[in-house]
Design a binder for these strands. Structure first.
Length: 542
RNA sequence: GCCCCCGUAGCUCAGUGGAUCAGAGCGAGGGACUUCUAAUCCCUAGGUCGCAGGUUCGAAUCCUGCCGGGGGCGCCA
C-alpha cells in the first residue's frame, strides 16, 4: 500500500533525481517540522545534493522546488527555501482532503505493512518458571512481547508467540518438594517455595502426600501452567506454542546438539567438565555444558532450545529476557553462531525491571520470598486496560515505575482513559450523525471537498498520516511504547478538531459535513487500531 | 574489577544514527459547562538535556573520560 506521505516522499525523491540529472541520490529526509511556519513538511534534499552539484544548497533547493511544483500540481500550495537549504512544503487543503480519502480507502489495512515483504518470526517471551503465579515483572514481559507481536504482524510479518516452559531442573525439584511437604501439612523446605498458593496446588493433587517429589512436581507444573495460561488469556495474551524443556531432553535433542558442537571443535573437556569455547564468538569466558558431576547445565538445554527454534525455519528468532539474564546474551549468541546461525537471525531483547509505586514508596517483587504482587492482583486492582497501558508506556530497556495511585484513578488524571475517551466521543458523534450519514460520507468524494480547512483539521489529518511510519518505527525498533505516545497525540489533535469544528450540522458554519464525518471515522479507526495493537480496549461509550 | 541500562521541566518519562525542537503527562496556579460525551478544553513551567573534554558549520542526539543510580557477572536456573 502506498500512503499519501510515502507518495509525497517519492515525489521529493523524483524531483531530486531530476535536478541531479541522473545517478543515485541518498534518500532525502521528509519530516514534519515542529513549527507551523516551517510548513507541513520539510526536506533536506537540497543539502544532500549540493556537494555533488557544486552549487549552494539554497540554489539547489529552488530547483527542487520548481520540479516539485510541476509534479505535485495543486497539491502543493507553496514551497519555501529556508535556513541553510531546507525546503519547506506547504500543502493545499485539496491535498489534505485527498489524503484523508486515501486513508479511508485503505480501510483496515491503513498503516499496515505489505504481507509480501513480511518475514516469519518467532517471539519467545514470559517463559516464567511454572512454579508459581505470574508476577508483575513477567506481566511486563507479557504486555511487551504480545504488543510487539501484534505490531510485527500488522507490519506484515507472520509471527508465532512462544513460551518456553522450564519444566525440569532444580527449581522444579524444589517445587515438587514444597508441594509434598504442604500435602503432608509440613512447612516447605528452606530452599523451597514459601507462597501460600503451594498449599492450594497440593490440595488439588489427589494423593499428593504419598507421591514422590518428581510426581508431585509434574502434576504441580501442569496445574501452574493452566493457571498461567488463564492469567495470560485474561491479559489478552495468547501463546501459539508452549515449548517444553523436558521434552528437549527426552527427545535427545540436547545430547544431539552437544554432539554437533563437538565436530567443529568448539567443545573441550577441562577438570572433569565439558566446556563450550564461547570465547571464539566474543564471549569473555568459556562456558560449561556438562558439569563435572555429569549434569547438563541449563545453558545446554537453552542451546538445544534455540537450535530447535532455528530448525523450524524462522527468518528471525526473537527472545525477550529479563534483566537478570543479560549476562547470558553473549554465550547464547556464541552458541547460536557456533551451530551455524546467522548473527542477525537471533535477537535477544533485555527487559528492565518494574517497580510498583504506592504512596511514593517502592516495592520490588520476587517469587521466592512469597510476598509478591501477581499480575492477577494488579489486573484486579487497576483493570486490564490500565495494566497493559502502564506496563507498555516505557521503553523495554528502561526501569519502569508504575504509579498505582495514578493507575487506579478512573478519571482524567489517568492517561489510559484519555485515548479511550476520544474513541468513545467519536463513536458518540458518529451515532448522532447516524449510520446513513456515515455511509454517505464514506461513499462521497471527500477528496474533492471544497472546504477551507481549519488548522485543527489539517493538523489532525497530518497526524493520521503519520500512522504508517509510526507503525514501521514501532516494529523496526521493537518499541510498542511509541504507540502510547502516538495515540495520545491523536486524541489531543482530535480534541482540538472537536472543539473547533462542528461535525453534525457543519453546514451551519459553512463546513462540509461529509468531510468532517469522514475525518471522525478515519480518526476513530486509527485510534482503535493503535489501542488494539497495545491490547487496550476501544470502547464505543464510556 | 568487567559488562549492560539509566541520569532531559517539581515528579514520571518521551525524543537520541547531527541542521527548523527542548517536549508530553502528572503536580501546582488561573480560566471555560444552555456543548456533537466537561472522563473535556484553554492559559501559566523558562529545565547548563549528570559533569568535563573531543569531532563538526552545527550534538540532548556521535566519541572519550569522570560522577551518580539500578542491574548482571557460578560446573544456579
Amino acid at each position: 500500500m502506498s500512503d499519501p506521505v510515502s507518495e509525497l516522499r517519492s515525489a521529493v525523491l523524483a524531483a531530486a533525481l531530476a535536478v541531479r540529472g541522473g545517478g543515485s541520490v541518498e534518500p532525502p529526509i521528509l519530516e514534519r517540522p515542529p513549527k507551523p511556519e516551517f510548513g507541513d513538511y520539510s526536506t533536506n534534499a537540497a543539502m544532500l545534493l549540493a556537494p555533488g552539484l557544486g552549487e549552494p544548497p539554497r540554489q539547489v533547493a529552488d530547483q527542487i522546488a520548481a520540479e516539485l511544483g510541476a509534479r505535485l500540481g495543486d497539491s502543493l500550495r507553496s514551497a519555501q527555501v529556508a535556513g541553510p537549504g531546507f525546503l519547506n512544503l506547504f500543502m493545499s487543503d485539496a491535498w489534505c482532503a485527498r489524503s484523508l480519502a486515501g486513508i479511508l480507502e485503505a480501510g483496515e489495512a491503513y498503516g499496515g505493512g505489505e504481507r509480501s515483504a513480511g518475514r516469519r518470526m518467532n517471539v519467545e517471551f514470559v517463559s516464567a518458571n511454572p512454579t508459581g503465579p505470574i508476577t508483575v515483572a513477567a506481566g511486563r514481559h507479557a504486555a511487551y512481547g504480545d504488543s510487539l507481536c501484534r505490531i510485527l504482524e500488522f507490519a506484515g510479518n507472520e509471527v508465532d508467540r512462544e513460551y518456553y516452559v522450564n519444566d525440569r531442573g532444580t527449581q522444579i525439584e524444589r517445587f515438587g518438594a514444597s508441594i509434598r511437604a504442604r500435602a503432608n501439612g509440613e512447612p516447605p523446605p528452606e530452599d523451597g517455595y514459601q507462597g501460600d498458593y503451594v498449599v492450594e496446588v497440593a490440595e488439588r493433587i489427589a494423593g499428593a502426600a504419598g507421591m514422590d517429589s518428581d510426581e508431585a512436581a509434574a502434576l504441580g507444573v501442569k496445574i501452574m501452567l493452566e493457571e498461567i495460561r488463564a492469567t495470560l488469556e485474561r491479559f489478552r495474551v495468547c501463546m501459539d506454542v508452549f515449548a517444553s524443556e523436558r521434552s528437549l531432553h527426552e527427545s535427545g535433542a540436547v545430547t544431539a546438539v552437544l554432539e554437533r558442537l563437538k565436530h567443529p571443535g568448539h567443545v573441550y573437556p577441562l577438570e572433569g567438565a565439558l566446556w563450550l569455547r564461547t570465547t571464539s564468538f566474543k564471549d569473555d569466558k568459556d562456558r560449561v555444558l556438562v558439569r563435572s558431576g555429569g549434569e547438563l547445565t541449563y545453558f545446554a538445554s537453552d542451546i538445544a532450545y534455540h537450535e530447535d527454534k532455528r530448525s523450524r525455519g524462522y527468518d528471525r528468532v526473537i527472545a525477550i529476557w529479563g534483566a537478570d539474564h543479560h549476562g547470558y546474551v553473549a554465550r547464547m549468541r556464541a552458541a547460536w553462531e557456533a551451530l551455524g546461525g546467522e548473527p542477525e537471525g537471533l535477537e535477544l531483547l533485555i527487559m528492565q525491571l518494574v517497580n510498583l509505586l504506592e504512596g511514593g514508596q517502592r516495592s520490588q517483587m520476587s517469587k521466592r520470598g512469597g510476598e509478591f504482587v501477581s499480575l492477577d492482583d494488579l489486573m484486579e486492582d487497576i483493570g486490564v486496560d490500565a495494566t497493559r497501558w502502564f506496563l507498555l508506556q516505557r521503553s523495554h530497556d528502561t526501569t519502569l515505575d508504575l504509579d498505582l495511585d495514578l493507575a487506579r484513578r478512573q478519571n482524567q488524571d489517568n492517561p489510559v482513559y484519555y485515548a479511550q475517551y476520544a474513541h468513545a466521543r467519536i463513536a458518540s458523534v458518529l451515532r448522532r450523525a447516524g449510520e446513513q450519514r456515515l455511509g454517505e460520507a464514506l461513499a462521497a468524494d471527500v477528496g474533492g471537498s471544497a472546504e477551507e480547512l481549519h488548522h485543527s483539521s489539517r493538523r489532525l489529518v497530518q497526524r493520521l498520516l503519520e500512522f504508517p511510519e509510526e507503525i514501521s518505527d514501532a516494529a523496526n525498533r521493537r518499541a510498542p511504547h511509541r504507540l502510547t505516545t502516538y495515540v495520545t497525540e491523536v486524541a489531543q489533535d482530535f480534541s482540538a478538531f472537536y472543539r473547533d469544528c462542528k461535525v453534525v450540522g457543519a453546514a451551519e458554519e459553512g463546513g462540509d459535513e461529509e468531510l468532517r464525518i469522514a475525518m471522525c471515522e478515519a480518526t476513530r479507526r486509527v485510534i482503535a487500531r493503535s489501542l488494539d495493537l497495545l491490547g487496550v480496549a476501544a470502547p464505543a461509550e464510556m
